[in-house]
């Protein structure tokens, strides 16, 4: 219920943004990757970022994570400037195979986040079991990542991120490398996990349908340098459903609008 209230607050726009980009410009190696980007993400909001490849969507996410510092402008988190990554901001990387520790089992990988958070070792096993159950991996605690499928590895990475008890979840094309069926299953799971935790989400994807299906708001970036080209509020009812949501006239209208935008940027 609390999360529903939060979400309502987010959509109605009364709360101060949890993450705020203020005229952010980022140059890397003499090239301007992102120019004058201003953007506010309210607590509990699910924001999707789409755009052609090379438009700086991953870079924007890394700025929000504190992995990059802006060349000019500011990135604020809870009205505090972001100087370095923080534990309440978790990142789900696309390349789950590289982001997991191959020498630790599933339980060990989740444990890494709990250890970093200073949880006493006696309390960890119960929490690890609970987290693995949450992401649909009960009974896989003793497996190494290399013994798991791509979808399971990505679930494991999500479990580790949830172990951080994040206020914000940053997801960088998390399902880009997965097959369509696994992808749809994980979309719904992420939606219910986020609804349960009330976390703010910034979700980067190149899949326009996925962006509309998941988001409260979709932002399309223009490339060279990256800046906002389109901003769409997604007023589709929740909980969303793989069939009825995707057949909803509003979904189709937004989809057409977003496809036209992407087509125009590619010319």
């Amino acid at each position: 219920m609390a999360s529903a209230a939060k979400r309502l607050e987010a959509v109605s726009g009364t709360a101060a943004p949890q993450i705020a980009f203020e005229s952010v410009t980022l140059q890397l190696g003499g090239k301007t990757i992102i120019e004058n980007l201003s953007l506010g993400v309210r607590a509990g909001e699910f924001l999707c970022i789409v755009g052609a490849s090379g438009c700086g969507k991953t870079t924007a996410l890394r700025l929000a994570a504190g992995l990059y510092q802006p060349t000019s402008g500011k990135v604020n988190f809870d009205s505090q400037p972001m100087r370095e990554p923080r534990r309440e901001i978790a990142i789900v990387f696309q390349d789950y195979g590289k982001a997991l520790l191959p020498w630790r089992t599933a339980a060990g990988n989740v444990s890494l986040a709990l250890e970093a958070g200073g949880m006493p070792s006696a309390e960890r096993p119960a929490r690890i079991e609970e987290l693995l159950r949450t992401v649909g991996l009960p009974g896989h605690a003793g497996k190494y990542p290399s013994e798991m499928s791509g979808g399971m590895q990505q679930r494991l990475q999500i479990a580790r991120c949830l172990a951080q008890e994040p206020k914000t979840l940053l997801m960088d094309e998390p399902f880009g490398a997965l097959d369509a069926m696994t992808r749809q299953g994980l979309q719904d799971e992420v939606l219910s996990l986020v609804a349960a935790s009330g976390a703010t989400v910034i979700f980067v994807t190149h899949d326009l349908d996925e962006a509309i299906y998941l988001g409260d708001r979709v932002i399309g970036l223009l490339p060279h340098p990256g800046r906002i080209g389109i901003e769409l509020a997604v007023n589709l009812p929740r909980p969303r459903d793989q069939l009825s949501t995707r057949e909803h006239p509003e979904f189709l209208r937004l989809r057409r609008q977003l496809f036209d935008f992407i087509k125009a940027t590619e010319q």
Partner: peptide, 19 residues
């Protein structure tokens, strides 16, 4: 990528070396 994971978990220098 693992160093980025460590940064986002705010792991200490010692923990990064040993873990």
């Amino acid at each position: 990528r693992l160093y980025e994971v460590a940064r986002s978990l705010q792991m200490s220098r010692l923990a990064v070396i040993f873990k």
